[in-house]
Nucleic acid binder design. Sequence first.
DNA 1: GTGGTCTAGACCACT
DNA 2: GTGGTCTAGACCACG
Lengths: 131, 131, 131, 131
Amino acid sequence: MLTIDLYSRIPIYQQVIDGIKEQVLLGILREGEQIPSIRELSVEISTNPNTVSKSYSELERTGVLHAAVGKGYFVAIGASERIRKDMVFEERKTLIGAAENLKRIGITEEELQTWLREVYQNEATKEKNET
Amino acid sequence: MLTIDLYSRIPIYQQVIDGIKEQVLLGILREGEQIPSIRELSVEISTNPNTVSKSYSELERTGVLHAAVGKGYFVAIGASERIRKDMVFEERKTLIGAAENLKRIGITEEELQTWLREVYQNEATKEKNET
Amino acid sequence: MLTIDLYSRIPIYQQVIDGIKEQVLLGILREGEQIPSIRELSVEISTNPNTVSKSYSELERTGVLHAAVGKGYFVAIGASERIRKDMVFEERKTLIGAAENLKRIGITEEELQTWLREVYQNEATKEKNET
Amino acid sequence: MLTIDLYSRIPIYQQVIDGIKEQVLLGILREGEQIPSIRELSVEISTNPNTVSKSYSELERTGVLHAAVGKGYFVAIGASERIRKDMVFEERKTLIGAAENLKRIGITEEELQTWLREVYQNEATKEKNET
DNA sequence: GTGGTCTAGACCACT
DNA sequence: GTGGTCTAGACCACG
């Protein structure tokens, strides 16, 4: 089940993309499996079908979904691994960028490592973070 | 001297804000010092005065600049420390967010710490990173 | 319906801000409710959309409104209480400031209290006062 | 001696006006007495002579000062009483306005009177208040 | 349709 | 000269 934050500055269509990827990554959606139709999902999250359509198109373009005309959308084979790689690439870039900035400001390596240690000691790390 | 990327997805006014903060942080602009007038800067970076005005207003609102009508804009007293604090807060949030996502994907704490070590071994860390 | 005085020394965008706050405070606009779009309001009060946009942005920044791109502006949850608190803070400052000045000039506490009593005896207290 | 707050949003020429009136009211400047020349004062408060000139002109227009060509500016006869009356009128308006707003928001008369009592119990009430 | 950004130009008050 | 406000018009991303 996708949860959409209508108050977020992140566009709804982007939240849908992130949500689908998340579910594939967590195995909630399996490769080859059919996902809700545009119409169904748009009702579920009370949004415009055009918005969901935009998300699905983008996901098809990036190889996460596969569109079968007249049948619906399916999770592409190999989607999980592809998503994982992209995500590592992106998040790594974000992490290193932040670390560089913090270094420039004068934060020591020790402080950073302490913060990271806390992240790994927390068991529940469920949600995504926005700026 | 501010460098603006007209083709960036980051709004020009935001780039100006970031640039000014950067210069204050690096001591290029000193506290109490007068900065280029709206008209001057708008010519320098080839934008509309209104755009620069928006940046300067926002910077005044956040306590980085001080506006003196008829005289110009000045770097506020205490601006540097204020910027530094805000930046640590923001970048820390970004770093921890990325770390949490990477943890969820299955990246180990050791891998992350290796990446960070590299950041701190590089001496030149010059550029700013945006999301 | 907002009434704007084009000849006032109070900027139009500020009058819009005050008017919206007023309507939220009076319950004319309810929390969560959608307000007129920038274009609609700008037509209604015969001003430029940019001016209304400035007002709405400021109101979003202060937590009174919530912007949903593509959908419109909505009254933020908790806006009413937030406005009330801010207003008490501001008006109290003004009141005490005026009282201090009057005291210095030689007005007695009794005189002031008489004036206040009159305010509270009048039932109709309808209009807003600006500096 | 006039104290000017360069960081205030109140125009310098207005601060000069307020300061002169203040000094007349407090008897620091006596009626008939000569006040500093435009040039002297502008040096004293490190500002543009035009600014001081604007203040003096305005003060002459409102009957606080009297200009003697070639000799300088003098405090007008009756200035003190006139200032006092104007000030009472203005501050009373401000006070009552704030009180009306506070009443509308739901502040009780008792609360207001408590605040006023505090003002009158404080012995030192020296400074002017800005919004 | 919505809001967000930007340009080009204007007028005003202040120094 | 400075900043502050406003208008008229444009283009973009989003729903």
